[in-house]
Design a protein around this nucleic acid. Structure first.
Lengths: 134, 134
DNA sequence: ATATCTGCAAATGGTTTGCGGAGGA
DNA sequence: TCCTCCGCAAACCATTTGCAGATAT
């Protein structure tokens, strides 16, 4: 059977940090933020709690090309936009498209449970900056 | 200016290995296969060439939740299906949906260049096995 | 009461890199 | 020729883990 999950001060603060940002931070950034509230929290504890919260379905781990993971405090499935200029990862306010899953099931015969969709390009702000430069 | 890329025996064989499979292998698997043809090839060379081929646009690096990367010998953008039972990653024969990008541009104002779409579920074969067991 | 969690520090493991020599263009 | 690539082995670095004591339930 699966292990029970306890709520500790460390876990609660890590969850609050993730809920309070939309920046999809790295474990290290979460660690730096958490140290402001618990100065002697350890990086190992941050990693343990991030995995723990992931198991609980409270947060999501995002794995991109970089060598490290990013974490998302919004556990609901949603799409992301990656700006190739400034590197930010932005949440998209766009409904989940179940038709895509239906399309795969019909053409391939596999049973689809979920999907993940990531867009890459140049965000509004970087576009404006580029236009000014020209 | 960007570095020039040379063709070597090692690079050619690594590319052939990737072109000859649809299994999205790890660097280590490519290394094992390459050793059959060049017994004293080093793992470092495999990694260097995988990165090199990626820069050349000949292959793609796929980054999933696992701690290691997988490589795809098909550099054309295409969608993947991940079987949660057997762990395989399968290519989907499905056209790239540009409407999704248009949808994001209209609703968010970002300029979209490309997107990546990954499906998760149970593949045909695993579905059949499960039905037999019941 | 007791199983889970913590800080600490060492280990892990996929990937990268510095080196001197080899080889492609 | 000359610049890139090679094999080798050590370094790198994000993440995990073993330990002994602390804490949540």
């Amino acid at each position: 059977m699966s292990k029970k999950h306890r709520m500790t001060k460390q876990k609660r603060i890590i969850m609050e940090i993730l809920r309070g940002t939309t920046s999809h931070p790295t474990a290290d950034w979460v660690y730096e933020q958490a140290r402001k509230q618990i100065p002697d929290i350890s990086l190992g504890t941050v990693y343990r709690n991030l995995n723990n919260l992931k198991e609980m379905g409270e947060i999501m781990e995002l794995c991109y090309g970089s060598s490290f993971s990013r974490y998302d405090g919004n556990p609901e499935n949603h799409y992301h936009f990656h700006c190739l200029e400034c590197g930010r990862v932005l949440d998209l306010d766009m409904p989940i498209n179940r038709d895509l899953e239906k399309q795969v099931e019909e053409s391939s015969g596999h049973k689809v449970e979920r999907h993940r969709l990531e867009f890459y390009g140049v965000c509004c702000e970087c576009n404006k900056k580029k236009q000014k430069q020209e």
